[in-house]
């Protein structure tokens, strides 16, 4: 039986069952890095993980596509560093740790496809969001960043002509869309259909 359905009363068409009846069960130990190293699609992406940078075989992508993917890669490394800021400021949680690891995996995935080293973040964006990730609004900031990342990658996939690159970006979009819903639930907004199902965020464009 759906525990949340049992415990709550519907609040009209704009809400789902209250997700606050039970504390989210995400406080479980994870070994995400090891899992990533063993993972299927991520295996190629993180095959040379060990430090914080990855370089791979050169690609046949056009220069404009490489520039676009480099931008996306730096966005992912920025997200990783922002999650790490939140964790280091006291919001140490396996879920945030997992998301940090995943954004790093996305950057490495781009490196594996393009040969572009995953060695630099978007410093301007990092500087703009760093404070918010170290404060009480870190989870909301994370939700906003994930939503913006999805919007950004949708713009990217609408430009890329290379099918392999498009498939990689599509898999990142799928995963980050799920991040948004999880973060909405952690924020206590799991009962808001707008927060969980809609994405009104603007893309972060160069």
């Amino acid at each position: 039986m759906d525990r949340r359905d049992d415990m709550t009363t519907p609040k009209g068409s704009g809400s789902v069952t209250n997700s606050q009846g039970d504390a989210p069960n995400y406080d479980r130990p994870t070994d995400v890095r090891r899992r990533l190293l063993a993972g299927g699609a991520a295996a190629a992406a993180v095959a040379v993980v060990g430090g914080r940078t990855v370089a791979a075989a050169p690609s046949a992508l056009s220069q404009s596509e490489l520039d676009l993917l480099k931008y996306a890669q730096r966005l992912e490394l920025t997200a990783r560093d922002l999650y790490d800021e939140a964790i280091s400021s006291g919001l140490d949680d396996p879920l945030l740790e997992a998301m940090s690891e995943q954004h790093e995996a996305y950057a490495h995935g781009i490196a594996g496809l393009t040969g572009l080293s995953a060695d630099s973040r978007n410093d301007e964006l990092f500087g703009r969001l760093r404070t918010s990730f170290r404060g009480a609004g870190a989870l909301q900031s994370a939700y906003d960043l994930e939503s913006a990342a999805v919007a950004t990658h949708l713009e990217v996939i609408g430009i890329l002509s290379d099918v392999d690159a498009a498939e990689l970006v599509a898999s990142i979009i799928s995963a980050e869309s799920r991040h948004c819903v999880v973060l909405a639930d952690v924020l206590g907004r799991g009962n808001e259909l707008g927060a969980t199902l809609d994405n009104d965020a603007a893309a972060i464009l160069p």
């Binding site: 759906d2 995400y26 799920r178 999880v182 799991g190 199902l197």
Partner: peptide, 18 residues
């Protein structure tokens, strides 16, 4: 998002998100 929402409502309380 719809898939994740249903998982959160029906799976996460007993099995977590990940």
């Amino acid at each position: 998002r719809r898939s994740a929402l249903l998982s959160i409502l029906w799976t996460a309380p007993s099995h977590g998100y990940l």
